[in-house]
Nucleic acid binder design. Structure first.
Lengths: 200, 200
DNA sequence: TCAAAACGTTAACAAAAGATAAGGAATTTA
DNA sequence: TAAATTCCTTATCTTTTGTTAACGTTTTGA
């Protein structure tokens, strides 16, 4: 895919968050970069400040954390989703996660610098604030749901929920990543699956 | 406390998120309501759309969820914090949580209607988008940290973290609320406390 | 002020999850 | 294509958590 095709996809998806007219889009597009990450390479690494927000046009990434030498995969992003070490991006502090491409991945990239410039741009500023607000609100809701599932549900219930919503994760991610995403060990998820099979 | 005093506090705290000049503040203040909730009364209830964002100037609230007849307290808000059933507020769908005042609580209230009006107001719109963005980003980071703690930490580690950061929660909330906040039962938290005492 | 309710701890038992290891299937890669 | 690696399951054992109940203390509220 080339930059222009990627921008086309991005422009379409962007409509979920902000409505840019032709003039605004042209200025906006000038601030967009295009990037590719080879499988197993990194979008972000711990100890480094994440200065970009990516929008995945092709591929997928996982967010993971190393604890006691073990990789714990906490989240994923797929096509048409944003990817960033948000806390690091927003605070300017070093991140704590790896974000790794799970396959060859192509993205539209908005650097922090570009974003700042657009926010300060009288033509685009308002729309960029709106864009930022809506994206943050969107992810806020995702996180709210996820926190809620940890507080009020058992691991088995969380897994059944995941099955019910049939998210992409199930098809595209190995089970041990899903286990950590649910907050449990791969062995435990395997047992839960067994339990469900027998019970039904 | 009267409305004016409350607005004074709010205006000061607002600076964390947006910088309003005198003219902007005057228009903004016209859209603010003032409210009081008696202890044990509700700011939000499940099945009802939450159409306000509150800013607590005095008191505190807890967010809880009823599961199998039991109340599970997932979160709290204190003075100088916002309170809302965000997902419901943002989506316009009925909420799933109770938000209950833990003591007589006073708040500045921004209704959804007021917020929409301000966002559409040419004088205030830009600043309101910025305000909304920054508040959402702030809470996004809080949630990101919390999700991360569920994925990568044991309940004991989460409790030790809470002790280390010495949050208001510890002083002001009964232990069984804290337990649910950590994603465990009150009995289990009591045991964790015992373990920590013996080990150290 | 006095009864009721709420709170934290502890105990006992059941259920679930973590840790470790082994084995086989599938996938990767050299 | 053969060897290595990854992945999932299963088993065993340990640790932790959930559940229920009892008890004493504190707080609440009628």
């Amino acid at each position: 895919m080339d930059k222009l095709a990627a921008q086309g996809i991005f422009r379409e998806q962007l409509k979920k968050f902000v409505d840019l007219n032709e003039a605004e889009w042209i200025v906006f597009a000038q601030h967009l970069d295009f990037g590719a990450i080879k499988k197993k390479k990194f979008f972000a690494q711990p100890g480094t400040v994440c200065r970009e927000i990516g929008f995945i046009v092709k591929g997928s990434v996982r967010y993971y954390h190393v604890k006691d030498g073990e990789e714990i995969t906490g989240y994923f992003s797929f096509e048409n989703e944003f990817v960033s070490s948000y806390k690091s991006y927003l605070t300017g502090l070093p991140g704590t996660n790896y974000i790794q491409a799970l396959e060859d991945t192509e993205l539209i990239i908005i650097t922090h610098k570009s974003m700042e410039a657009m926010l300060a741009n009288p033509v685009l500023g308002y729309k960029m604030e709106q864009f930022g607000r809506r994206v943050a609100e969107y992810y806020l809701i995702c996180y709210e749901d996820r926190v809620s599932s940890f507080v009020t549900k058992t691991p088995e219930e969380r897994y059944l929920d995941l099955l019910a919503t049939g998210r992409e994760i199930l098809q595209r991610m190995p089970q041990h990543y899903i286990a950590h995403f649910l907050g449990i060990t791969p062995v435990s998820l395997s047992r839960i699956r067994r339990r469900i099979l027998i019970e039904k």
